[in-house]
Computed example of a mutant assay.
Amino acid sequence: MTPLEASKAMYDAVHAGDWNAVADFMAEDFVIHEPTSLPYGGEWRGRDALQRLYTHVMGYWDDPVVKWQELVGGEKYAVALLHFTVTAKASGKRFETHIAEVTAFDDAGKMASMRIHYFDTADIVGQLKA
């Protein structure tokens, strides 16, 4: 599979809640990098990192709506461009932001890492304050 095909299949598995299938796309030493300024920031490691991160992140939000704007890929990378609309549980504020998820693939075709880029992390932190 190309990075684009693998990413599409992985995101389809996330949407279906099939976390075993999601883990199959990940390298053993897979790592997700979230901005450290966010309450769920830092490195998340392991083939189950995306499941653990997803569960943790969604603990901060109600009524999430994720719209896939585009998924692009090359030989070693795939980039998902997302529009994220949520309500902060702590404040009740509804807001939206843009996110780019950059996934790097290893030589075996497995997902080696993912870097999450938010348009404005300060805004996200501000929305979380009651």
Rank of each mutant, 00 (worst) to 15 (best):
T87V: 15
H15A: 14
H98T: 06
P35A: 06
V65K: 15
E75G: 07
K76V: 14
Q51E: 15
D107H: 08
A27I: 00
D12M: 02
T97F: 07
V65P: 00
D24I: 01
V31H: 03
P35Y: 06
A104T: 14
L71S: 08
A80Q: 08
G73V: 07
L50I: 01
D106Q: 04
G92Y: 15
K110C: 01
V102I: 15
D12R: 04
F105A: 02
T121H: 12
F105V: 02
F25H: 14
G41Q: 13
D120M: 13
V125N: 08
S37W: 00
D63Y: 10
W44V: 07
V102E: 11
A100G: 11
A88H: 06
I116T: 12
E43F: 09
E28F: 02
H98V: 00
F95A: 09
K89S: 05
T103F: 13
P64K: 13
A13C: 02
G42Y: 10
Q69N: 14
D18W: 03
Q69A: 11
D48K: 04
G59N: 10
P64T: 08
H15C: 02
G73F: 06
H15D: 05
R115G: 11
H98S: 07
Q69R: 15
Y77Q: 09
M114V: 11
T36R: 08
T121M: 11
M58H: 07
L71Y: 10
K89C: 07
V86L: 09
M58V: 00
P64G: 10
L81D: 03
A108W: 01
Y118F: 15
Y54V: 04
V79Q: 03
A88L: 04
V57Y: 11
I99A: 04
D18N: 15
A108Q: 11
R45I: 03
F84H: 15
S91H: 06
A108C: 01
F84V: 11
A104K: 08
W61A: 09
E34I: 07
W68M: 10
N20C: 00
V14T: 06
A90T: 12
S37D: 09
G59L: 13
R47F: 09
F95H: 11
E43G: 06
M114I: 09
R115W: 06
T55L: 13
A78D: 04
H83R: 15
A112W: 02
G59I: 09
W19I: 01
E75M: 04
Y60K: 10
Q69M: 13
V86T: 13
R115N: 13
P35K: 06
